[in-house]
Design a protein around this nucleic acid. Structure first.
Lengths: 259, 259
DNA sequence: CGATTGGACTCCTCTAGACGACTATGTATC
DNA sequence: GATACATAGTCGTCTAGAGGAGTCCAATCG
């Protein structure tokens, strides 16, 4: 049985924090292993002799830290660490593309996990301001918008939206749901735009409710956003890809020269 | 006055979410500008005709998204967007170092904001396993550990800990609180280790309570961690720097060749 | 044996109220 | 004029209870 201690009313921390600390201690010590069920609210109420809301406040603290997830009707569980995907900075090397594989599937294969893509949608729209700027287009210029969701072993890990100038995408498989072998980068190069380099802008934040739903994550789990712009050998931007990744599922790796 | 609408009991969203949505709407629309005070709990209770806990739950939702911060005795305020620092991938170019400036101060100057460093501590310890591995040292080998906190315009934005093998750091200013002109990278090069490149590993997560305190951030604000390893021209790792950044204060920029 | 039903258990949402602590402001006093 | 104090308003914490909804499993019925 779990040693949860008791509430110390002389402690300057409020009871709910003390309860949270006890549980947190067991989680970090491994006494409560990933995937394991925490004591139920009723049990905690009984053990600590506090009101229901106090126990719930403690649990909410842990949820806010992303340590536990509550499942309605089942219980509260220690969040199981999902497989971490390391994204190396050479993941868009042309050598990988020539196998006829899209970048995501290449990485996924390297980790030996089953990767899938769903919720693919393609449309042609006016470019949002942020995208137009990065593509050196006038605001409102038409771009092909490709959205999709990536899953690793069935678990959603990333949603991505690509924007390609219509002048490049028109008449190619880029406008189809299936972009063909090698993915859209292969199609872009077939249009005479040899890819030279990418810039990536990385930041992190809390997800919007819509993102929480699409990525199937609870409150308290942050996301990383990565906005990648692809340039051809003329330094012309040919694609902007806006991705939202479940933060604990990724480590991004970059190599930076000291110049 | 703010148009907050009313609770729709036929809506499938619970009241507290509807209240949160109304407030969120005003925040994203700018009707509630950054720094502005939200209606008080009492006002929201009166307006929506709900219990206090319901209103508090709505506010907690917004706090969890990092949209608002509560200040005891004053009110709840829209989080003012802090100045964002863009970290370009060439920020460690030798050209910058030769001015005698440390990297952080160079970047900060570029944005015209006052940057400071405090809570500097230096010690010599056994290398933690993760660090030893990156430095190609045996576990437990001695390393010089340098910790410090960075502030931008007086606001904490990053805490950082560097690990340098004792064989390189011994007898240099690296072991002093003031590492001298150009920072520790200048000292490392003076020891005959010409820097060639860095690898950076980026991820994001929720902060620990200690990090929350050091960075002065409330619940619901994620952090990015960036672990940088510096290599000399012999591909020998000469430094590991573990940084924890307030996520909304940074955008990391990288340039990646297409090969 | 298979399908359905019921109950136990779980977390979710909400109500109504209480006291405490912190902040700001105005007032009275020195 | 400066200090001390009272007060109102704010959020923080806690109590005690209620009904709802999702999950699971065992007992029951066909």
């Amino acid at each position: 049985m779990l040693d949860l201690g008791v509430i110390d009313r002389t402690d300057d921390r409020p009871p709910y924090r003390q309860i949270a600390a006890q549980l947190r201690r067991h989680i970090s010590a491994g006494t409560l292993a990933p995937g394991e069920k925490l004591p139920s609210e009723s049990e905690l109420i009984e053990h600590f002799g506090v009101a229901r809301m106090t126990v719930r406040q403690a649990l909410q603290e842990l949820r806010g830290e992303g340590l536990v997830v509550a499942e309605h009707g089942k219980g509260v569980f220690v969040r199981s660490a999902p497989p971490v995907r390391r994204l190396a900075s050479d993941r868009f090397a042309r050598a990988h593309r020539q196998d006829g594989k899209a970048a995501f599937l290449v990485e996924a294969e390297a980790t030996g996990r089953k990767a899938t893509v769903d919720q693919i949608s393609v449309s042609t729209e006016a470019a949002p301001a942020e995208v137009a700027e990065r593509l050196h287009l006038e605001e409102g210029a038409r771009v092909v918008v490709r959205s999709r969701r990536y899953l690793s072993a069935g678990v959603p890990v990333e949603i991505a939206t690509s924007y390609i100038p219509e002048s490049i995408a028109a008449g190619t498989a880029i406008t189809s749901t299936d972009s063909g072998p090698g993915g859209i980068y292969a199609r872009i190069e077939e249009q005479g735009h040899e890819l030279a380099h990418f810039t990536e802008e990385v930041t992190a934040r809390m997800p919007t409710p819509e993102e929480r739903k699409a990525l199937q994550i609870g409150a308290g789990v942050p996301v990383m956003t990565l906005i990648r712009t692809a340039y051809d050998t003329d330094e012309t931007p040919v694609e902007v890809c806006d991705t939202v990744k479940v933060s604990h599922a990724y480590v991004l790796e970059y190599d930076v020269p000291a110049r």
